[in-house]
Amino acid sequence: MIANPDLLSSLNGIVSGEVSPEMFADLTQIPMHTVIEIMEWWSLQGIGDNWNSKSCTYYTGSRLDAGIVLIERGLPIHDIARRLDWRDFEGLTGRILESEGFDVQYNLIMKRPRLEIDVIGIRMNVALLIDCKHWQRDVPHSVAVRQTRRAERWSTLYKMNAVPVIVTIHQEHYVVSGVPIVPIAKFRSFTEEFFGDLEHVRSTE
């Protein structure tokens, strides 16, 4: 049976392209005799193609898919998110929204002025406008203010109530200038409780 710490470390070996066991071991610092077992296990989970004990081909998004497998297995989402890159971190945020019944859009760009929103989740005619920060440090006031401006601009364009949110790896849930700063480990519970707490968070109309 593969130990959970090795499964977490193995995420570092899932990179785009053809990956040999030697390369996987170098990326993860997992002993070679365990690497073969792990790569075969990932193949059985549907992660990667053409596994033949000499190599496996991974794709953009394979690491995110692997992270979802580990979340479903019960491993800590915080530890998984730390091993994702910023783009997969956005994808993980969107997957959580989808699982809670939100319609999701990624990387919406508004012009004049140019503003980009990482992830948008819409449900019951309310939008969560999310800035994903793959950070473990505190979010500065200026970042929260910019996200509020994005929400105001989006709300004006799309005529819908919008709530600015920042999702991070940081483990504390707090508020900066009226903007919820939500750790990814608590994001699912935030979305589950969101509509009951709507009157307590900043929104635009």
Rank of each mutant, 00 (worst) to 15 (best):
M1G: 03
M1D: 06
A3T: 02
S10R: 04
V15H: 00
V15K: 00
G17V: 11
S20W: 00
E22C: 09
M23D: 03
D26K: 13
L27P: 00
T28Y: 01
Q29K: 14
P31L: 02
P31S: 02
M32F: 03
H33R: 07
V35A: 13
I38H: 00
I38R: 05
I38N: 01
W42R: 11
L44M: 10
I47V: 06
I47N: 05
N52P: 11
N52H: 03
N52D: 03
K54R: 09
T60A: 15
S62N: 12
L64E: 00
A66Q: 00
A66Y: 02
V69G: 06
V69L: 05
I71T: 10
R73C: 14
R73M: 14
L75F: 00
L75G: 15
I77Y: 01
D79M: 15
I80N: 02
A81Y: 00
R82N: 15
L84Q: 15
W86M: 15
D88L: 08
D88E: 15
D88F: 09
F89L: 04
G91L: 03
L92D: 10
L92H: 06
L92K: 10
L92T: 11
T93K: 10
G94S: 12
L97K: 01
E98I: 08
F102R: 01
D103R: 09
D103K: 06
D103N: 08
V104F: 04
V104A: 09
Q105A: 15
Q105K: 12
Y106M: 06
Y106I: 09
L108T: 07
I109A: 12
R114K: 15
D118W: 03
I122G: 05
R123D: 06
M124Q: 11
N125L: 13
L129P: 08
L129R: 08
L129N: 04
I130A: 08
C132L: 03
C132H: 02
C132A: 06
K133P: 03
D138A: 14
D138F: 09
S142M: 07
S142E: 13
V143G: 01
V145Y: 02
R146S: 12
Q147V: 01
R150N: 10
W154S: 02
W154T: 00
W154F: 07
Y158T: 12
M160L: 07
M160V: 07
N161K: 11
N161E: 11
N161H: 10
V163R: 05
V163G: 06
P164L: 09
V167I: 15
T168A: 01
T168M: 04
I169Q: 13
I169D: 02
H170W: 04
Q171W: 00
E172V: 12
H173L: 09
V176E: 12
V176D: 05
V179L: 12
P180T: 03
I181N: 07
V182Q: 05
I184V: 09
I184H: 00
S189N: 11
T191S: 05
E193M: 07
F195S: 03
G196Y: 02
G196A: 12
G196F: 06
D197K: 13
D197N: 13
V201Y: 04
R202M: 15
S203Y: 13
T204M: 10
